[in-house]
Design a protein around this nucleic acid. Structure first.
Lengths: 206, 206
DNA sequence: GTCTATATTGCGATAGAC
DNA sequence: GTCTATCGCAATATAGAC
């Protein structure tokens, strides 16, 4: 499902293609805003279209329906996130440091944090169009972080009594939960600091 | 706003009052289901009314509008949750054990977990009718758990280098984040076990 | 206390002109 | 590629009969 690549034209044969791609990009930015603020179900194509400055029909020329627009937004944001977190199974520390970098970066893009917090809760329902996307995403992320902790365990740098899988589950849960508290009151905590404090209890680094 | 008590009649002077209260209770149960599955914004009064087996107008006779219905649902659930977590500032351990009991209880009422996960993310938006409710709720909960960890610190039972406030923030974040993962895949983890493992790293008990 | 009927608004999506 | 016009549906809420 989301294994499919973003449906952008691979080659540009005409000059007009560049303009189309720009339009599509502006649509995605607007859609990110709307889905962040209102969630997918309550966010409207009407609102997205208005922010782009075009009609709903014009918008639907680029994305056939609401669900495929959401998919495109998620695909785009995933590319960015994976840039920050290296996934070398031989270098668990790099992955863990990547999570810290991600937490720090997230604090600069509250809209994106809001998007994922809202959607991951919403997509809990099996009939949600992003349900499979999130199920798969969490499975993969858990495995990735588990592998990182396993690498650190091999090096004797995991706190005794801590299991790699348990640490992975807790790390993801902590990151998600911190986001909700932070969105509700940004002065109440620093996401990266809180994550770092936790990680220092679990793994020996720095 | 939510400082107001649930708007139930205090005294019953007529036999018919009992039937009314039963109806109101059935409405709240149905509303819990609907708001859990679809969130507040996308959950409809139509759906709630259908589950109760009455018309929308009939429903609105008991709760003047959608927002006050949500408030009533939240008030009802809060009563139950506070029963499980004792808040004696002289007995921090009891509070922490209460959180564990709450996590265990939550696993038996997925609908309630879904309600709070969905709503707390949704209510991140300042214009959401439950925004103030959740902001206040998180502030209070953070302070309550911080006090519990402070009590344990006084007894020398908090892991060195851990701050009561940081532990409180992390504990809440962990509980919230575990819920999302659990809702997406209930076989992936046990919420209470994960919480317990974390607490054992933070505080000396059992 | 519950109903039918209705007002009003907003939604996603399609048809077809330009 | 973008528009106007429109369809069909569902939403919250109100008015008033019973």
């Amino acid at each position: 499902m989301e294994t499919q690549a973003p449906a952008a034209p691979v080659r540009r044969r005409r000059g007009t293609y560049a303009k189309t791609e720009d339009t599509r990009h502006r649509i995605l930015e607007a859609a990110l805003e709307v889905f962040s603020e209102s969630g997918y179900r309550s966010g409207s194509l009407r609102d997205v279209a208005a922010r782009v400055g075009m009609s709903e029909a014009g918008l639907l020329h680029h994305y056939a329906n609401k669900s495929s627009l959401l998919q495109a937004v998620l695909d785009l944001r995933d590319e960015r996130a994976f840039d920050l977190v290296p996934v070398d199974p031989e270098d668990g520390e790099a992955t863990i440091r990547g999570l810290l970098a991600l937490a720090r970066y997230n604090a600069s893009v509250p809209g994106v944090v809001e998007l994922y917090s809202t959607l991951s809760a919403e997509a809990t329902s099996p009939d949600h169009p992003a349900h499979e996307y999130f199920t798969l995403r969490y499975t993969r992320t858990r495995n990735m972080i588990e592998a990182a902790f396993e690498d650190l365990a091999r090096r004797g740098r995991l706190t005794p009594g801590v299991s790699p899988r348990g640490a992975a589950i807790a790390t993801i849960a902590l990151m998600d939960g911190l986001q909700v508290q932070w969105l509700l009151d940004r002065s109440a905590l620093d996401m990266a600091d809180s994550l770092e404090a936790f990680l220092h209890k679990v793994v020996d680094f720095d």
